[in-house]
């Protein structure tokens, strides 16, 4: 039995929980085009921590290369959408 497809909206909500709860970011900062480093001010240490939290939150493993390719919030949503639905 296959799991129902997870929508991008649902992924965005989960992502927002991680970023607001874990990094004290405000809701209005979290737009799809927001850049992680320049706009959300996540530094290299934050990005590592973010990957760990995200993995725990969505029960997925994110490779270092995948993490490096992520620039915006939308990039993460797309990556998680692809990985979560490939698993189902």
């Amino acid at each position: 039995m296959t799991q129902p497809e997870v929508s991008k909206d649902e992924i965005f909500k989960r992502l927002r929980d991680v970023l607001v709860g874990g990094f004290e970011l405000r809701d209005e900062q979290l737009v799809p085009t927001a850049r992680l480093v320049e706009d959300l001010e996540l530094d290299s240490l934050d990005l590592v921590d973010f990957a760990v939290r995200l993995e725990q939150h969505v029960d997925l493993e994110i490779a270092e290369e995948e993490l490096k390719s992520i620039k915006t919030v939308q990039d993460i949503v797309d990556l998680l959408y692809q990985k979560l639905n490939a698993r189902s």
Partner: peptide, 9 residues
Amino acid sequence: STLPVAARR
């Protein structure tokens, strides 16, 4: 308080 939040503060 998470570690990233503590570091930011």
